[in-house]
Design a protein around this nucleic acid. Sequence first.
DNA 1: GTTAGCACTCTATTTTGTCGAGTGCTAACC
DNA 2: GGTTAGCACTCGACAAAATAGAGTGCTAAC
Lengths: 344, 344
Amino acid sequence: MELDARKLGILKAIIDEYILSASPIGSRSISKLEGFSLSSATIRNEMADLEELGYLEQPHTSAGRIPSDKAYRLYVDQMMQKASLSEDEIKIIRAHMGAKIDEVEAVMKQTAQALSLVTHYTAIVMSPMLAANRLRHIQLVPLREGRALVVIVTSAGFSQDAVIRIPEGMDSYELERISRMLTEHFCDCRMDQIGDSMLREMGGELKERKAFLNSIVEAIDRKIEPESQNVQLSGATNMLHFPEYSDVNKAKTFLAAVEGRSMIYDLLKRASKLEFSITIGNENEDETFKDCSIVTATYRVGDEPMGSFGIIGPTRMQYGKVISVLEFMRRSLSDILSNDLDDD
Amino acid sequence: MELDARKLGILKAIIDEYILSASPIGSRSISKLEGFSLSSATIRNEMADLEELGYLEQPHTSAGRIPSDKAYRLYVDQMMQKASLSEDEIKIIRAHMGAKIDEVEAVMKQTAQALSLVTHYTAIVMSPMLAANRLRHIQLVPLREGRALVVIVTSAGFSQDAVIRIPEGMDSYELERISRMLTEHFCDCRMDQIGDSMLREMGGELKERKAFLNSIVEAIDRKIEPESQNVQLSGATNMLHFPEYSDVNKAKTFLAAVEGRSMIYDLLKRASKLEFSITIGNENEDETFKDCSIVTATYRVGDEPMGSFGIIGPTRMQYGKVISVLEFMRRSLSDILSNDLDDD
DNA sequence: GTTAGCACTCTATTTTGTCGAGTGCTAACC
DNA sequence: GGTTAGCACTCGACAAAATAGAGTGCTAAC
């Protein structure tokens, strides 16, 4: 038995209906649908076949059918049409991303918010991974007694800073001197190799400052790897609107998992190897997300992939819409990060 | 009719029991309690009196009684004992706050996390308000073409930074010169008055840089006022463990309100005028929090109040425990911010 | 002032009954 | 052979009825 055109049509109709209604679809409701001139009995036969093929499931004997993960996979791979964004949706996104933003973290927050507002699902956004960036500039700025701020700027134009201790008696001229020296030495060095490189090259006049330099490297290392704390989350409670999560315990499990961030972080990190990815239901490794789908996209600065972001929703997700939004966002985000950070 | 010692004792017992069980307390369960050698009938009479006085409520005719907001108010004002923290709890807090933290925002996140972990309620933490701080240092650091990072350091030792545009042809020496000049001019000026002060004093050689200076002031103004986005939230989903929120709709309302941040921000801002505050149920202005209690504390740096943080839970809250935790945290936080930011 | 006893109230839970949506199968139809 | 009408059957959802149990208020006795 094969999937002929009619079976495909019926399957698509069932999926589309189910995405909207969230309740099992019966044969009659399909046969009444525009474009089907078949009786419910015929649909029933086809549905029985589709069930045997593993595309449909029956919650119980006398209910309608619901699509299986396998069906959604087929759907996103072959049947789905991308939904283009409405004027309003674009406006919402623009309004969110257009605000004056002068910090990477703020951009991430806004992105997450815009995503969850437009899609009504849960949005997750990961800060840029700076490891593959190259150093452009290091500046040490004196703070109060015994402390300084290390500011690092990367080739992609990101800046990060951290407070460090400085040795007794080191004045601002000395700090300036060291800043220049470090900038010169390590300019264009990959951020994640500054430590190694420093160990190798640390002869000469920097020798006596070994401990101090180490603390700078440590601070840098801590900053280049975005941690799970740096995952922005927005609209987690949107999940509560879906009948799938009307059970408090399910909701609790889901919310606790996303609030914990670390799962999400792992997930986004893995996803950052691909331009786009869609994982459906059981394709998710995490037990918690077995009845969710996760769609992610990766943003870039220049040619370098910097991080990913995405949407978590029920498997019954509006894939077409979500993918369009992510594509749009991917472009906006890459643009903002490449050029316009701090523009009006 | 007055509240004699016996009535007080019974009321306290009811509150204590109710805080643990979350279900209406009957007369018999009180009379069986250690320390009461009264029959349930007597307790019943007393409970009827307490109800008449407004301290108890009856969900329906034949249920036990539950404490009213008025009862909780009396409880926290007069009857409650502070619970001292257990070894384990202190360990949890130390573990969270002890990690190397070199950024204000990281400290706030950790604080929120520690609070929610230890109390099992929802923790809210607001970043320091820098408005009352005085400027100690301004540094402009050149970034890529046409952009610089403004780093400001305040008297309390906080640093903030923002990316700004710089005029064509302004080189790093010029930036350094302006940094010194600004630092000198506005050192010890209140952060929220730098703008005004600059308008007044901006004669002389800074005149031709008017637009540029304005953009610096704007950046500073944006940074000194913590926004609602800067409220850290942790353990929001803890609320779902409480039977009070087993109704999905209630949970949804609550979570949406706290996820929105802005209510929380207003609330913490108001609370920062007091050392501690407890608002119970209907004392909260916000409809959403009518059956929550909110306990807040204000942290300081030196003598200056900087911001507040707190706990949101059901009115049936373990007040004694929560207050102790907040007191402990208040001290830790003030210490960390005063001295040890970036210490191991 | 305290307490035992009892009738009463009200909720929560279980049980039972009913309805309707949907199915699978069969037989007839084109 | 594919399609369809018809029908008996299944099963969950929902409502009504029955039951159990906790707790109260009141009264009368201690």
